[in-house]
């Protein structure tokens, strides 16, 4: 397995991601250095917190350009939770903020109308329907439980993207795959063996 770089930009449960990846036998390192990110073959972008703050932090450190550079050089990138949302075009948490634009979808809050009494944040294990051929879900059942904790989501109809979906009042994108770019709205590092199997699939890509 190639070395994995977990991007540290001050937002997220880096340790959890790191220990899951190491548990699976991969060599993993935390980095906030744009040059290491730009040269990496495999990247994980974790993240917990506000979209705006996260993008500000990525831009201030030049990590946004480093991620683009790596992805253009065919690095495999996995965004987790906020990390997946950052792949999108625009985030609406805390005002509109431009995202990394690697996945052609915006990130909006669950609106009270569509929730039909369901609670926000969406917290807990929910079943995810794997899209046919989704590489992250290879070997997993067509529907498997993953742990979510979020109040914002991407709508599931995304052009040129393989979208595995979940439902919380409305369907939303639980995981995306577009070439070498991957994202999960749920936390695979917190989703017991289902999550470990998914992470192993990413590590083996």
């Amino acid at each position: 397995m190639p070395q994995v770089f977990v991007i540290d930009y001050g937002m997220g449960n880096i340790l959890s991601v790191l220990s899951a990846v190491r548990f699976l036998g991969a060599t993993a390192e935390v980095t906030s250095d744009p040059e290491s990110v730009a040269r990496a073959a495999k990247l994980i972008l974790p993240g917990v917190g506000s979209f705006r703050r996260a993008m500000e932090s990525l831009r201030a450190s030049g990590l946004d350009r480093a991620i683009h550079h790596a992805v253009h050089n065919d690095a495999k990138l996995l965004g987790i939770c906020l990390g997946m949302q950052l792949l999108g075009t625009v985030g609406t948490e805390d005002g509109e903020t431009e995202g990394l634009g690697l996945v052609n979808q915006r990130v909006d809050a669950f609106s009270p109308g569509e929730l039909a009494g369901r609670k926000v944040p969406h917290i807990g294990f929910s079943p995810v329907k794997a899209a046919p051929g989704a590489r992250l879900f290879a070997g997993l059942p067509a529907e498997a439980d993953f742990y979510f904790v979020h109040s914002y989501r991407m709508a599931p109809d995304i052009p040129d993207t393989v979208v595995s979906s979940c439902e919380h009042g409305v369907p939303f994108a639980a995981a995306v795959e577009k070439g070498n770019i991957f994202g999960t709205q749920f936390h695979p590092e917190k989703s017991q063996t289902n999550g470990l199997l998914l992470l192993r699939n990413f590590l083996r890509l």
Binding site: I14, S16, S19, A20, V48, S191, G195, L196
Partner: peptide, 30 residues
């Protein structure tokens, strides 16, 4: 929490943002 791949919340006497961050660095997610 080592080897525990489930969500973990921790607390008790958290009075500063830095303490909260320290818990997150020690294995907590919430």
């Amino acid at each position: 929490t080592r080897g525990c791949f489930a969500p973990i919340a921790a607390g008790g006497g958290v009075r500063t943002v830095e303490q909260a961050r320290q818990l997150l660095r020690s294995g907590a997610d919430k």
